[in-house]
Design a protein around this nucleic acid. Structure first.
Lengths: 117, 117
DNA sequence: GATTTATATTAGTCAAGCCTAATATTGACG
DNA sequence: CGTCAATATTAGGCTTGACTAATATAAATC
């Protein structure tokens, strides 16, 4: 077991810019990175798992997640600004949901991978 | 359009601990969060996309990604410590690969979602 | 219109993450 | 054994992120 198994072609082109055309534009990387970074925080991930395909008010999220209202509000803002969560205001309350099916898919797979059920 | 559409049951149990049994143990959240956080950095995401299901040496990664060797080495260490990348040393060189099919799946889906091809 | 309820915003502090530069390790080869 | 090549590690400064506490907005209710 010393002969470098499983090696495919190296994909190391002369100009280092070419790589972007193979693995995606750097813009794509930025975008994906930003979205993942927004989702990766433990509280925000908990919020996303909690919301799922429902629609929850801020208060419900605060009570379920268990931290300050201010803290939750700031995390919701991050997710909202990234376009991951959508907000709907009704009278006094604001309801959050995940509109983008791609986000739902990512969360579903994350669950599938990291949770036992 | 004012009557709160798409609302399912609120999933807001009395004891706030119960939530963990519904959306996953807090341990799962931590684990998933850590893995996502490791993958979310733009350079690290680029590394992961570049490696894919190949096996690349550090030098190849450095040249393709385009930053300092030290910088790459540190990012590789983060991914290695998280168990996302596996290293194999052969003589002078170290080859990195993604062993876990779950990680490959996440990357594939991330690509599918954020890249146009 | 004053108070209460629900949410958002701001400011300040503290910790964490990232990059650069320099140095250390490890193996190959003369 | 000394040098080169490949990779890893450490230290330093700097920027960013997160939480707390306090304050602001906005709508409902009395």
């Amino acid at each position: 077991m010393s002969a470098r198994p499983n090696r495919k072609k190296a994909a190391a082109p002369a100009a280092s810019e070419d790589i972007f055309d193979l693995i995606g534009k750097s813009e794509n990387i930025r975008e994906a990175s930003a979205a993942m970074q927004a989702m990766a925080h433990p509280l925000r991930l908990k919020i996303l798992c909690l919301v799922g395909n429902q629609e929850l008010s801020v208060l419900e999220i605060v009570e379920a997640v268990g931290t300050t209202q201010s803290n939750i509000s700031q995390h919701l803002a991050v997710l909202r600004d990234q376009g991951i969560l959508q907000a709907r205001k009704e009278a006094n309350k604001v309801f959050y949901r995940i509109e983008d099916p791609r986000i739902l898919k990512i969360i579903a797979i994350t669950r599938e991978i990291f949770c036992s059920f």
